[in-house]
Amino acid sequence: MKNVKDQVYAALCTVSENVSDAYPCSWAEGSTIQYTEEQNDVYEASSDAEGMREDKALVRYRIDIWNNHSTSEAALQVDEAMKVTGLKRIACADVPDPSGMKHKQMRYEGIIDMDSDSVYWR
């Protein structure tokens, strides 16, 4: 398992002060961003004298953006900010929200080499 949560959080904090890995309990005037690790699996493994070893991990993050008026600007900023993580955007869509707020959901994923932290795309 490879933990990249700190890097994702740091990247998102460059976009908004309201970033959390939990559902927002209060809504900011600007954009509110929630990030969730959806997947962190062994992608490639090998064995040696010490036993099984994870060589590469597949990670996927979902990023939700809420805003009273528009999520477009924040989505562009999130996309730019996430480039530093090496994760690739694989999906982006508007989501109906019963609260009346604008809601956009984005997904990013990559395959991370456990030894070098290099990120590969499928």
Rank of each mutant, 00 (worst) to 15 (best):
E37W: 06
T71Q: 08
S20W: 12
M52E: 08
L12M: 05
K83E: 14
K104M: 10
R107W: 12
W66H: 03
I33G: 02
I90V: 15
S118P: 00
M114A: 10
Y120L: 15
P24M: 03
A49P: 02
D21C: 10
G51V: 04
A49T: 06
D21L: 04
N3C: 04
A28V: 01
Y61G: 00
V8Q: 01
I63R: 04
S46D: 08
S31I: 01
A28P: 05
M52K: 11
N40M: 07
D6I: 02
N40S: 14
L12C: 05
V8S: 01
G100W: 11
A93R: 15
Y9I: 00
S31H: 05
Q7F: 06
D97K: 09
N40E: 03
S116W: 15
M52V: 01
R53M: 08
N3V: 06
E29S: 13
Y9E: 13
E17R: 15
Q34P: 04
D41W: 14
W27Q: 14
A22S: 09
R122C: 04
Q105T: 13
D117Y: 15
V59L: 13
I63G: 03
A11C: 07
A22F: 15
N68C: 05
A74W: 04
G51E: 08
I65K: 00
Y108S: 01
G30P: 03
K102D: 00
M52W: 14
G51N: 09
E73Y: 09
A74I: 00
T14N: 11
P98V: 05
L12G: 02
V42C: 11
Y61P: 01
A81C: 05
C13K: 15
E54R: 15
Q77F: 01
D79E: 13
D117W: 15
A11T: 05
N40R: 14
K104V: 03
D64K: 09
Q105W: 00
H103V: 04
V95Y: 08
D48A: 07
I111K: 10
D113L: 03
W66C: 00
D48Q: 08
S20R: 12
E50Y: 12
N18Q: 13
E44S: 14
L12D: 00
E54I: 13
H103C: 07
E44P: 00
Q39D: 11
R107Y: 12
I63K: 04
G110A: 05
H69N: 08
V78W: 02
I112M: 11
M106G: 05
E73N: 09
W66M: 00
W27T: 03
A81W: 02
I90C: 14
N67F: 04
V78H: 08
D115L: 14
A10C: 04
A57G: 10
E29T: 10
P98K: 13
M101H: 14
V84W: 04
E29R: 14
W121P: 02
D117G: 05
R62G: 08
